[in-house]
Design a protein around this nucleic acid. Sequence first.
DNA 1: AAGCCTAGCAACCGCGAACCT
DNA 2: AAGGTTCGCGGTTGCTAGGCT
Length: 321
Amino acid sequence: MRKPDLMGKDRVLPSNSNMNKAKLRKGLWSPEEDEKLIKYMLTNGQGCWSDIARNAGLQRCGKSCRLRWINYLRPDLKRGAFSPQEEELIIHLHSILGNRWSQIAARLPGRTDNEIKNFWNSTLKKRLKMNNTSTFSTNDSDSSEPRDYAIGNIMPMHDHDIMTLCMDSSSSSSISMQGMVTGNQFDSFSMLNSRYDVTGAASLFDMSTCFTQVGMGDGFYGDHYGILGATNKTGLALPPLESRSFEEKNTVSNCRIDMESNNNNCSDNICFNNTDQRFKVEDMLELENHWQGENLRMGEWDFEGFMENISSFPLLDFQAE
DNA sequence: AAGCCTAGCAACCGCGAACCT
DNA sequence: AAGGTTCGCGGTTGCTAGGCT
């Protein structure tokens, strides 16, 4: 859609009073700026964003650099259209979490909160509204509060649908940096070319497979994304919320985890085999129905406890399509 | 061909939380 | 403890491409 800064817009923010703070650029990022930021991040890793902006030779505020990196330059981003599975998951998570885009994004590897937010506002919201004006009142479908159109209501999630969500981590195309970090060479130009010559959804993804990096310390992606920070043994990264076992956390519902068998045959009980734990979807649905039945709203119940339960949802990792 | 409208998306803004001094 | 700074998040804006008339 929008081409990167071909309009030659060098919008510059005149510094209010301090000319030493110099003119901070605003607006679209040029390829040169991207290159500078990528090079700096790969060499030095993440630190104080205002320092990054300064040291990388960018006339941008740190905030702008952070946004650009997180939403566009991070090598683990999955670009391109959302898959139907991702769409369903977003709808489902939004029904639970509301407009907590970062929480939703944390469960969609390679997707950013901004991307999901845009997708929701531009596409899903309208679709849901159109599909369901007759089934329930959509007085505030963009409410920041979770809604009760969870599974089986607005967006019926059948066993088959859920089965499509049941991804074995072994087939995962998780764009985890693991496996990509193999050396010190990095061709930022080819990376940029790859990005700007993008004609298909997978260009960034393809690029990332040969991406190498150096100097990425702990928290390279920040706490929020946790791509590197909390990778379990299957290579899947879980948001910080998943620090405890499902069983430990589950105090609200009667969800149970079948940990006795390593059998992957889930024909009877649809399950997520995300980790060693087999999480039965039927139980998940029970949990969902519980919430739905109670018609719970934020502020009317124990949000922390809820989040702990939510955190036990599997992190799905879709094939790049 | 020109103008208008709309969808999609990158980026900015404001606010609150966390952290630092 | 108080004030300042930085970070992260969600809401919003502004711009472009593409479709339509």
